[in-house]
């Protein structure tokens, strides 16, 4: 696990968590909560963001190539929607064969509940999934607050 933080003056906040084992599920959600607090998100949003990251990083640890991947967390440029946080969870694992199925609550190919992806979509404002069979998975999630 390696973490990096940068926030020099006016530049946007950015953090990175390398995922290589189950300890990084905790590391990633703590980093996400820390950044959410720094950006002024309230306690419910902090919990939503930390929970979503926990789900996504667990998917990496469970399903990706050797359980390896990366989480990039950064502050988004301010918009009329307010302040935003973006988290990009990426791996080069086997990819998701059928995205529609993977987004269906209760569907799983592993030992979990199949709540991760559909639940993450409900917890966050925007969720984008880029995956194809054999080419890894990148899930990008965003949350905004005024």
């Amino acid at each position: 696990m390696s973490n990096g933080t940068s926030n020099n003056g006016t530049s946007k906040m950015e953090m990175r968590v390398t995922v290589s084992g189950e300890g990084d599920i905790v590391a990633a959600r703590q980093a996400a909560r820390q950044m959410a607090i720094a950006l002024g998100f309230g306690s419910v949003d902090q919990s939503r963001i930390a929970t979503a990251v926990s789900e996504l990083v667990r998917n990496v640890v469970r399903y990706a190539n050797g359980g390896r991947g990366e989480v990039l967390l950064h502050e988004l440029p301010s918009t009329p929607r307010g302040v935003g946080i973006e988290l990009v969870v990426a791996d080069d694992g086997p990819g998701i064969a059928d995205l529609d199925l993977a987004l269906h609550p209760g569907y799983t190919t592993g030992p979990g509940l199949g709540m991760g992806l559909p639940g993450t979509r409900r917890l966050m404002d925007e969720t984008t999934i880029d995956s194809s069979h054999g080419r890894g998975t990148t899930v990008t999630i965003r949350k905004w607050h005024r």
């Binding site: 919990s47 929970t51 559909p118 639940g119 409900r122 917890l123």
Partner: peptide, 11 residues
């Protein structure tokens, strides 16, 4: 906050 997140997660 955890209760709200759990409901949205579907648990």
């Amino acid at each position: 906050a955890v209760a709200i997140s759990l409901v949205e997660l579907g648990l």
